[in-house]
């Protein structure tokens, strides 16, 4: 059986199709929630509690599947299903961030395969997101001055250069730098640079701006 904590959302305006897809997905051991419209699904968001993916009909009345995908903005992997797919629509779907594009009627192996892949992606995305969250939390612990120091240190400047940049002496920068390393739980400059890389220098700067 597959990870039972995983959740699959199905959005299709056709009640009967919704029910049938839900059964098929449930038969593979996933939990399923169905929605008759894009709006109903948006009302249910956010969906961050567990790895999840979305099986989405492109032709929906009011808010279409593509519009919903754009709105979600890669918040979760999307498998598009459509009754009459053409190349243009497929391209549109992929641009909107689809992980898969299947045509109706969809066979169990195609759909369940696509779901397994999408969920794997969701798990990876969650791992990355968690790691990022943890790193950002560490950045939050830095004082504004320590942030400035970190931002400059990771660009490869020597302590001396950082000091002149910030209008202070090397000794002070050395002390700041030690605290930055401790708070960021980095054991080497290389590690600190990798962290800065992951959250982005702007991540460091943005946090500073928020203060």
């Amino acid at each position: 059986m597959t990870d039972s904590a995983s959740l699959v959302f199905v959005v299709d305006d056709d009640d009967s199709v919704c029910r049938a897809l839900a059964r098929l997905i449930r038969s593979a051991g996933y939990r399923v929630e169905t929605f008759g419209s894009a709006r109903a699904f948006l009302d249910r968001m956010p969906v961050d509690a567990c790895p999840a993916c979305l099986v989405l009909d492109i032709q929906l009345p009011e808010v279409s599947g593509l519009e919903l995908a754009r709105e979600l903005d890669t918040a979760l992997p999307i498998i598009f299903i459509t009754g009459h797919g053409d190349i243009a629509m497929g391209v549109g779907a992929m641009k909107a961030g689809a992980t898969d594009f299947l045509s109706k009627p969809v066979s169990d192996t195609d759909l369940l395969g696509a779901i397994a892949q999408a969920l794997e992606r969701a798990v990876q995305a969650r791992t990355i997101r968690r790691e990022l969250d943890a790193l950002r939390a560490r950045v939050e612990r830095l004082t504004p001055r320590e942030r400035e120091v970190m931002a400059l240190v990771v660009t490869g400047l020597l302590n001396k250069q950082v000091a002149s940049e910030l209008g202070t002496v090397e000794q002070t920068i050395k002390a700041h730098r030690k605290r930055v390393m401790a708070k960021m739980e980095a054991t080497s400059l290389a590690q600190l640079i990798r962290i800065a890389d992951k959250i982005g220098l702007s991540g460091v700067a943005q946090s500073r701006a928020q203060r």
Binding site: D14, S16, A20, L21, R23, S27, G83, K104, P105, S107
Partner: peptide
Amino acid sequence: NQPLTAILSNVQAA
């Protein structure tokens, strides 16, 4: 296509 989709998924689920 809609009923055909539902029928196929229902049968395969069963």
